[in-house]
Nucleic acid binder design. Structure first.
Length: 1039
RNA sequence: GGGUGAUUAGCUCAGUUGGUAGAGCGCUUCCUUUACACGGAAGAUGUCGGGAGUUCGAGCCUCUCAUCACCCA
């Protein structure tokens, strides 16, 4: 059956993929002929994910590497899988429930909800794995892993796996080594999902905000002399004040203030340091007084120089509060509303005051339980509370006032504030009024950086909560060393600097999440022994749990309850019978009972789950069966990690730390980082902008190979990735070109029995193309080894199109049509060999079209996907004489064509060719190849002459000057112009060369080979120049 | 504010220890010549962001300025 006109990617790609998959072509170890392994771990996409251009890009790279190594006979594994993606998945399923009108998550309860998540996963999850097949990814699908495999909640219908075991084992081991701890710290809290999130899951976005200026009156009506000076020490303001002025962007957090801080060098406030001031909000009778302290944190030049310290709601304040042992009062609940729990405000405020006065001791748990939100604000949304607080303070006259720019009058120039950027808070705008007030509250409009949840898009609230942390400072060392000592290399190199910078300043990693979908933390809580002294009293009082005494908790960590129970039994002694408190939505911390002769103690499991990245940090070995003794562990450590640079910290650094901490080894020797894939203009793709390119659309339109080639071609190390449909289209055309090269072979009835062997060629053109093939194979391997995929792609393109199609196939025509049977046979076989090499070398980038063409042979030893990657070198295959000769031929043809076109010789016309002073080499090159030259340059005949006739186009060549006599056709002026233009270009080059060679310092300092090259070049150019001069002179005679 | 990178042909980008600039697309002209119009042939276009320095020699190294992008505060 004759070949189709073009490759039909739409039908062929699924067919070919099925063939490979059915044959097990991608399985771990398939086609292995040596022991060395090559392993790439696919960065697991979210189970909710879909293939986007970023995946398409890095999959192409991973697949190129994998296919390349597999063809080289390595024992390869490209390990696929999915990430359970805690927040994203939980969100997706909750939306799904809402859309179907089913009960909410909180209504159905944990167990039922997890069932729904697994159901959702079975029905909708992992679509990306089907989409990846369309790209041609050669992953071992039979090994596809899931970060929640083997979890307690997993239904029996799920594919078995033990990733959960790995997660629990690592947690327990790290806990036992003291690398994981529980603590009360300020964390980023997402009020939408009601969970803590890590620093990396927060996006800081600049938004329009306001800075309010308020007065905190001094206790007891005390006053002081407030003096402001300019840079030269001249007094610019002096007044008596009975307050300290505070600037804040978050007035609602004033309720939790524990102090006001000023810099110790700030002379303005020196008189009042150590005194108390009043928080100007809340019921007048219970105004809290807080101390004025010094700390290095306040910036004297920013705002008033005085900062309110709210340790529980701001990261900077938190550090100040820790340093100064300032109580940190939490004001909000998990939804970001003002707290409504605890005792009435009057009671709480009285205790707080006693603490501030130093009359009462306090501890963390006690402070945490206190609710200092005044009764009238309790339960309010945080932003609503802000408005109310601002309004109340202003109404009471404690807002700093400035002249109203809208009010014209003599009063406009007075006022205490030096800033002039005052405006009115939108929330306070009274609207058009007949009488404009002369003074208004001082509210600056300014850009502020506000934290948003990257999933929820709501404003993140710093919250003081009990969370689990990895003590990253303790495990970061080996991960740093691995890169510093070169055991792991990050490409491009700039990534290493960024990596160091982050790891050297690493913060503790908050790993607990208040979610349900994820690995539940394997820790059970019980009371400490001290607490149990009162066992009988507590039991008989019926009290359950100790939420107000968290400090007396005891943790029992184990991979299962029985492990934890064993630890608990040891801790509590034989008099206790230990069991597990049934999980419920709102568990007590533990419970007591009496069972026979024993005291009964029920422990509860921590309801939180682990950060998704904790489990993905184990991906490099958790996918290989660890902790079981699995044969697949031979693939650890893997080789290359290919991923976007945006998850260098999220994931790469954590894999490094976790692999080092658990297995004492770095998980890969190379990290290949790439940038975000953007649109053709370099803009981020987003749904709102409408510039999203769907890789599947590109595959539909141009085939996967074209998309892949485009990806490979733009994979310059560290480069900006701009995907362009025009380019993809261009590489589709490239595929067609390759296709047509095979049509060519078919057209000339060249036999295609199967794997073509390389001949020791006798024909110059065959020797030449074999040498070119050797060169390009080396270029490609060198490029691949250096991760310079764009160089590999460019080399393949230039070879296939520019060498094989443009020249070799054209050169072969006269022989294929000729009578020299031996030459014909040799050329036929060489042509088949060269085309086979194109398929092999292109296969890692363009797997589909190459396999399809490969299968056209009558029989093959192996599928192309398993074909042997060549090892021949340029040194083996290049014949220097053939190389020189063919390049001379190509040069001559180019020059004749160019001359013809410029003097408008009709394309079809055959012209005679003259030559003068042809040397022996030139003569022999002509003799060997005149058929090719005559055909491709449309030459009728060659005659030797001593002098060119008048009106002759001149073509200077190495070894002789050629000419085309065109007396009738030639436009003398035009030809002179052409030659002069060439002379000009030549002149520039000659100038440079002569300049260099005439400079004695160049001769002295430049390396010998550079000097020799310059000299040879000069001789060549000078010869050319002479020929051109002669030609111009000849033309001048006619003109 | 800190960090990283970028600025090369009309557009999008390469350019690997400093040796005198390239590709694709687009554009112009010609060509349906039996592999291919998703093609062939020919052609035009760059003070390599500005300035200074090191060097025999700088797109590449150093400094500086300008503009832009991204990451982290």
């Amino acid at each position: 059956m004759p070949m189709e006109k073009t490759f039909d990617a739409k039908t062929a790609e699924p067919r070919l993929y099925k063939m490979w998959e059915d044959a097990g072509a991608f399985k771990a170890g398939a086609n292995a002929s040596r022991d060395e392994t090559f392993c790439i771990m696919l960065p697991p996409p979210n189970v909710t994910g879909h293939l986007h251009v970023g995946h398409a890009f890095n999959h192409t790279i991973m697949d190129m590497l994998t296919r390349w190594k597999r063809m080289q006979g390595y024992d390869t594994l490209w390990q696929p899988g999915l990430d359970h993606a805690g927040i994203a998945t939980q969100l997706m399923v909750e939306k799904d429930l809402a859309a179907k009108g089913l009960p909410k998550r909180t209504e159905m309860g944990r167990e039922k909800f997890l069932e729904k998540v697994w159901e959702w996963k079975a029905a909708n999850g992992g679509q990306i794995e089907q989409q990846a097949r369309r790209l041609g990814d050669s992953m071992d699908w039979s090994r596809s892993a899931f970060t929640m495999s083997g979890a307690e909640s997993a239904p029996a219908t799920e594919k078995p796996g033990n990733f959960h075991d790995a997660v629990l084992k690592v947690f327990v081991e790290m806990y036992n080594k003291g690398l994981i701890y529980r603590g009360k710290r300020l964390v980023n809290w997402d009020p939408h999902f009601e969970t803590a999130i890590s620093d990396l899951e927060v996006e800081n976005i600049e938004v329009d905000g306001h800075m309010w200026h308020f007065k905190y009156p001094l206790a007891g009506g005390e006053t002081y002399e407030y003096v402001e000076k300019d840079e030269d020490g001249n007094v610019t303001l002096r007044e008596t004040r009975d307050y300290i002025s505070i600037a804040t962007t978050r007035p609602e957090t004033m309720l939790g203030d524990g102090a006001v801080a000023v810099h110790k060098d700030d002379e303005r406030y020196a008189p009042i340091v150590g005194k108390l001031c009043e928080i100007p909000v809340g019921p007048k009778e219970q105004r809290r007084l807080i101390p004025i302290i010094t700390d290095p944190y306040p910036d004297m030049n920013f705002g008033s120089g005085a900062v309110k310290i709210t340790g529980a709601h701001d990261f900077n304040d938190y550090e100040v509060a820790k340093r100064g042992n300032i109580p940190m009062y939490s004001l909000m609940d998990t939804k970001g509303n003002m707290r409504a729990d605890g005792k009435p405000y009057a009671e709480e405020a009285a205790i707080a005051q006693a603490i501030a006065n130093g009359e009462q001791d306090f501890d963390e748990a006690m402070i945490a339980a206190m609710n200092l939100v005044p009764d009238e604000y309790r339960g309010l949304d945080r932003f609503e509370a802000r408005k109310r607080v601002v309004a109340d303070i202003t109404a009471e006259g404690n807002a700093v006032m400035v002249p109203n720019p809208a009010a014209k009058g003599p009063g406009a120039e007075t006022g205490t504030a030096s800033e002039d950027a005052a405006d009115r808070s939108p929330g306070l705008d009274p609207g058009p009024q007949p009488d404009v007030p002369a003074m208004i509250p001082f509210v600056e409009s300014k850009k502020i950086m506000q934290p948003f949840g990257d999933r929820s898009k709501v404003v993140i609230e710093p919250m003081l909560t009990d969370q689990w942390f990895v003590d990253t400072a303790k495990i970061v060392g080996p991960a740093l060393d691995a890169v510093k000592e070169g055991r792991t290399k990050i490409m491009p190199e700039s990534g290493e600097k960024v990596y160091y910078h982050w790891l050297e300043n690493i913060e503790p990693w908050c790993i607990s999440r208040q979610l349900w979908w994820g690995h539940q933390i394997p820790v059970w809580y019980g009371p400490d022994r001290d607490y149990l002294k009162d066992f009988e009293a507590i039991r008989s009082s019926g009290s359950l749990g100790v939420p107000d005494r968290q400090n007396s908790l005891q943790y029992f960590c184990g991979a299962s309850f029985s492990e934890a129970k064993a630890k608990a039994a040891e801790y509590y002694g034989e008099e206790y019978k230990i069991d597990e408190l049934a999980p419920s939505d709102n568990p007590s911390m533990f419970a007591f009972g009496k069972a026979d002769a024993q005291k009964q103690l029920s422990l509860s499991r921590d309801p939180d789950v682990l950060d998704t990245w904790f489990s993905s940090g184990l991906w490099p070995f958790g996918t290989l069966g660890w902790p079981a003794d699995d044969e697949a562990m031979k693939y650890f450590p893997g080789d290359v990690l290919v991923t976007g640079q945006d998850i260098l910290f999220f994931w790469v650094a954590r894999m490094m730390m976790m692999s080092e901490a658990v297995l004492g080894q770095e998980p890969f020797h190379t990290v290949y980082l790439h940038q975000l894939v953007r649109d053709a203009k370099g803009e981020k793709m987003s749904k709102t902008k409408g510039n999203v390119i769907d890789p599947l659309d590109m595959i539909d339109a141009y085939g996967a190979d074209a998309l892949r080639f485009s990806n490979a071609q733009m994979a310059a190390l560290g480069g900006v990735l701009k995907i362009s449909e025009d380019r993809i289209k261009g590489y589709r055309n490239f595929g067609t070109k390759l296709w047509n090269a095979f049509s060519f072979a078919e057209h000339y009835d060249i036999p295609y029995p199967g794997d073509a062997a390389r001949l020791d060629a006798t024909q110059t053109l065959n020797k030449w193309i074999i040498g070119e093939t050797g060169k390009v194979r080396e270029t490609i391997d060198a490029a691949m080894e250096a991760y310079r995929f764009n160089d590999a792609a460019d080399a393949l393109y230039a070879f296939t199109w520019g060498k094989v199609c443009d020249w070799y196939l054209e050169f072969s025509k006269p022989i294929l049509q000729g009578d020299d049977a031996a030459a014909k046979a040799e050329t036929e076989q060489t042509l088949r060999w060269v085309l086979d090499q194109c398929l092999i070398l292109l296969h890692p980038i363009m797997p589909f079209i190459t396999e399809e063409l490969w299968q056209q042979a009558d029989s093959r030893a192996k599928m192309l996907v398993h074909a042997d990657w060549p090892t021949y070198t340029a040194a083996d295959l290049v014949d220097a004489d053939a190389d020189r000769e063919m390049n001379w031929v190509i040069d001559l043809i180019d020059n004749v064509r160019s001359a013809r076109a410029q003097v408008h010789v009709p394309a079809g016309a055959k012209v005679p060719l003259l030559v003068s002073g042809l040397d022996a080499k030139g003569q022999s090159a002509w003799d060997n190849n005149h058929v090719l030259i005559q055909r491709l340059a449309r030459i009728e005949s060659l005659s030797h002459v001593d002098d060119f006739p008048k009106g002759c186009v001149t073509i200077p060549m190495e070894g002789g000057t050629f000419g085309i006599p065109l007396a009738d056709l030639i436009d003398v002026a035009e030809e002179i112009a052409r030659l002069e233009k060439t002379m000009q270009k030549l002149g520039k080059e000659l100038g440079g060369l002569r300049g260099r060679l005439n400079n004695p310092k160049f001769i002295e300092s430049a390396p010998d080979e550079v000097v020799a090259e310059a000299k040879a070049n000069l001789a060549l150019r000078e010869n050319e120049e002479a020929q051109l001069k002669a030609a111009i002179a000849r033309l001048a005679e006619i003109g």
